[in-house]
Design a binder for these strands. Structure first.
Lengths: 359, 359
DNA sequence: CCCGTTAGGGAAAACGTTTTCCTTTACCGA
DNA sequence: TCGGTAAAGGAAAACGTTTTCCCTAACGGG
């Protein structure tokens, strides 16, 4: 205060009164601990980090007592600055309102936490500009790794990949071939769906998909179409549809509505995500078509709620729970300097046959 | 390398070969910018932070050019260390597999991001020990604020509240009365549900709830029971149920199953979360009971998927989307030093009447 | 001509770590 | 006794900021 008084008046102050770092309850720093234990901060640091052979048992005991008494915990920020790397891992998700992505993010959080990391979660809303902004922000945070949970292609992303930043791609592959990846075998899954329908004798099929910019979408579609074609069934162009909206639910609804305007409905409808399938289901209901009896709807992801709310929906289950550890391992591979790997998690086709009215 | 060679062999190394901070592509620091622009780092800092009246227009131009050329962005960690406070806001959620919490977290992320903050998201799994561990970790990160998205009571939490750490409680109230809160008026909502049922002539009702440790649960229940009682309807003890599991879906399933063992089913079933309602619905189906015709099921939260998958479920809609800005405002209130406030967001009862078989 | 003010900007400290050197003992073998 | 080595631990630098002082030059008023 006295320093401000010197000027004699408040008019001249051109910055906000923020002045010095905020008070907040003082927390113990390594210096406090060192003083209390009567050693140097170097020794405290070594003991905290378990560097052996550098302190006598008595010293270790002294220091640990001081730590306990003061409730000391190293300030990550100091460490990060010195090491030029924090214990933070960033997860950039394309769309957190998608239950599947949210579930994968949650799984990643657990796995990262157990390994001592902290997750920063960002929603890029599938926008290239936001994604780039986030990438820069994350670099400024000195994050230890970046997990792209469904990346969109963007100039900044290319730069980061080029610069060999530690990036792991999940579900959608990264640019170029030298990127690490965790996901499912979308193409294989697509062809399994085709096989399943054919086994049921369903040959009149249609597909509804979201943006083909996503490698996952493109691969699912390719797998399905190729498997169908190899059995002699080629889908008419108007049987492979999408809609000009970004929300998958609305894609399902709108695309199915317009699909039904083209003559007789298909007997099998492959929706490239569960959300699309929900939308499709609604459109089918509107049209008085029951699923799965009249139109067999197949989704992708297998939202856990399907067991409770969508007993009519056959879906490709992706193993959310396993994503967390796979992501962690993927990051560790990157950190170890090993060449990039592609890890494919096992999926399963969950077949549900219950009618819309299950009584 | 040469330093290691000195020892002549690998046996003696007692630390991992990590040695010095990792290489990574060198990113520009404030020093680089200062040198390039031919000014001091103090000047660069002032210009970056928009401190007026301290640099001539030409200097500003020079510096900004240097910044652009180098692609400089301040390293948050350095700033955080100096200010003893980062731009990170931590969100500690009780259960990220709950779609409602995930949605609120996603909403918070957007709002925080727009205000220039970065969200760290943690899943406490409703465990006191994990929550405490996270709290300490977040303090070590020098986070600017902590959002407790459904807190569990824990010793560490009490400490933090005592220490006046900037904590905002969401959905579940914090310990003591001097804590900031954002949520809905659970009690009022509970009584509205009662009123709704009574208006429909439904007086035989039951309630299924999760842990009563949650203030939200307790308030919803109290609101409902009191409103019922005030109209002369008291629920039998076995009509207010829970189940000894943590998963809300299973609570709904198990509690409803055992409820149905007690004579005639209620005509109205208030489930204190949508997930509980989904479980209840399944149990009702098993028993051959249709909803809403025979048993009117009412949920809470109104999962966005209800419109698509649960046309039989009337539910209290909480405004997810509004949580983000409310949370941001709540934090800003705390930071401004104003006394704690309780903000109640508007809820709505969404009435759905469609039968289980909507054709 | 002198004093006071202001604009413009630099030097340096501080934030909390980790790690590299360096020093001091103590001990052991020859 | 000497030389060498190991154990134990300290001093100090560095990481990238922000901010407090401080300095200089210019300028305006008396």
């Amino acid at each position: 205060m006295s320093k401000i008084e010197r000027h004699g008046g408040g008019m001249m102050r051109d910055r906000k009164a923020k002045a010095e770092p905020r008070a907040r309850s003082k927390i113990a720093s390594i210096t406090t601990v060192a003083e209390r234990a009567g050693v140097s901060i170097a020794t405290v640091s070594r003991i905290v980090n378990g560097i052996a052979k550098k302190a006598s048992p008595e010293t270790v005991a002294k220091v640990q007592r001081a730590i306990a008494e003061l409730g000391y915990r190293p300030v990550s920020v100091g460490r990060a600055l010195r090491l030029r790397e924090s214990r933070i891992v960033a997860v950039l998700a394309a769309n957190l309102s998608n239950p599947t992505m949210a579930a994968i993010a949650a799984s990643a959080e657990s796995a990262l936490r157990q390994a001592g990391y902290v997750m920063v979660l960002c929603d890029t809303h599938d926008r290239a500009d936001l994604q780039d902004e986030y990438l820069l922000e994350m670099r400024a945070l000195l994050v230890r790794g970046i997990v792209m949970l469904a990346a969109v292609s963007s100039p900044g992303l290319d730069d980061f990949v080029q610069a060999k930043e530690p990036i792991l791609f999940v579900n959608r592959r990264g640019p170029g071939s030298r990127t690490s990846f965790v996901g499912v075998d979308n193409k294989q899954a697509g062809s399994e769906v085709a096989a399943h329908l054919l086994k049921l004798g369903v040959t009149q099929t249609a597909v509804i998909h979201g943006s083909l910019g996503s490698s996952a979408t493109a691969e699912r579609l390719a797998g399905f179409l190729e498997a169908m074609a190899s059995e002699g069934h080629r889908l008419a162009p108007h049987h492979v549809r999408t809609a000009e909206v970004s929300d998958h639910l609305m894609i399902g609804l709108n695309a199915t509505r317009s699909l039904l305007e083209f003559g007789s409905p298909p007997h099998g409808l492959f929706c490239l995500s569960d959300l699309i399938a929900y939308g499709a289901h609604k459109a089918l209901q509107e049209a008085g078509l029951s699923s799965p009896e009249e139109v067999r709807v197949i989704g992708f992801d297998d939202n856990p709620l399907n067991n409770w709310l969508a007993p009519w929906l056959t879906s490709v289950k992706v193993p959310y729970r396993e994503y967390g550890t796979a992501i962690l391992e993927g990051l560790e591979t990157i950190w170890s300097g090993a060449p990039p790997r592609h890890v494919l998690l096992r999926h399963h086709l969950i077949v549900r046959m219950a009618g819309a009215n299950p009584e």
